[in-house]
Design a protein around this nucleic acid. Structure first.
Lengths: 180, 180
DNA sequence: CACACTCTTCACAGTTTTGTGAATTGATTT
DNA sequence: AAATCAATTCACAAAACTGTGAAGAGTGTG
């Protein structure tokens, strides 16, 4: 890794940028495998991995090598989901996007709430029509499972917040990379 | 199979089958929204909601109204994931599929293990190249989040098993189905 | 050994997604 | 009011998915 090359070299800004871009793509791929759509995933990964706190659409388009139109489309679901916030200062002509809240993952867990509600009604409705039998038993069990997971969210979130307070103070000793 | 009501028979077997089929589709849609591919999701939902313990490919094809080829393709990822098991008794010509284990959801949680491992190496690698800054901090935090969730799995699974033992005994009294 | 039957693979067609460039809308500045 | 600049929308092309029918491979049966 490009840390301290001999011959007066230091961390090349280009190399660092490129490494970051690669990481963003891999991260996005992960999210995409997990069901998130491709462009939203890329935008999300990019925003998370960037040092800037806010991003203009132009910057996203440039950083991800796609058209402004693609950004427009990708950003909407993220804003809908409440993951990104669109800010525009009065008298500014450009939108500024930033991640909502300072604890993204707690936010994200919270956003699942409606889905769990939806699941519950679907299964409850289903159980009304299913006649007794192994299938019905499994579906009932599935509803209980989702209820259980849903109910565990509070605990989980609280514990995460505690843990987060502990770890995010020391983002791993910054390897002495002066220069730049 | 069909409840067989006397006389004018209220619960039509057909109606029940149809309701079940509808439920299967909705359930599959849910899974599909959550990132599972459509056909595997349909097969999984079907298998879960059916009373039969095992299913032949032909039965799945018939029940889901798709070709045998589609079943073949849909079943592979499920078997790979370890959700379905393919059995064939010696001297039998057809495969029998059934859900692996009696506690599907514990199984399913367990299957996520490799993914979390993958995530960890990806983020750890990424952190090696990211220079200090807000982006690095967020990525670090994200790795910690996934580690946290992963670590919670054991607890979660154990608690689910406890709860399951409590609820699956009483799959909800079959309603006395008073006139529709 | 040939048949019968099931599962799988393959090429293909229909459908959905995805991202682009161009046109449009909306707002600010001059 | 005209000009300018950013964001969104639209029609379209390219790519990816899905599911099908038909051919192929593997196995028990008569």
């Amino acid at each position: 890794m490009v840390v301290n090359m001999p011959g007066g070299g230091k961390v090349s800004g280009d190399a660092e940028r490129e490494a970051r871009a690669r990481f963003v793509e891999q991260f996005a791929m992960l999210l995409s495998d997990a069901g998130m759509q491709r462009m939203p995933a890329r935008v999300f990964a990019y925003v998370l991995a960037s040092d800037a706190e806010t991003h203009t659409a132009a910057e996203l388009a440039d950083g991800l090598r796609v058209s402004a139109a693609a950004i427009s489309g990708a950003v909407r679901p993220l804003v809908d989901m409440g993951i990104l916030v669109r800010d525009r200062a009065p008298g500014d002509r450009v939108d500024h996007y930033r991640v909502y809240g300072d604890d993204v993952w707690s936010t994200l867990i919270g956003r699942q709430e409606p889905m769990y509600r939806h699941i519950d009604v679907l299964f409850t409705e289903g159980l009304k029509t299913l006649s007794p039998g192994a299938g019905r038993r499994r579906i009932h069990e599935t509803r209980e499972f989702y209820r259980f997971v849903h109910a565990e969210f509070d605990t989980l979130t609280r514990r995460w917040r505690e843990r987060r307070a502990g770890v995010s103070e020391s983002p791993e000793p910054a390897r002495a990379a002066p220069g730049e």
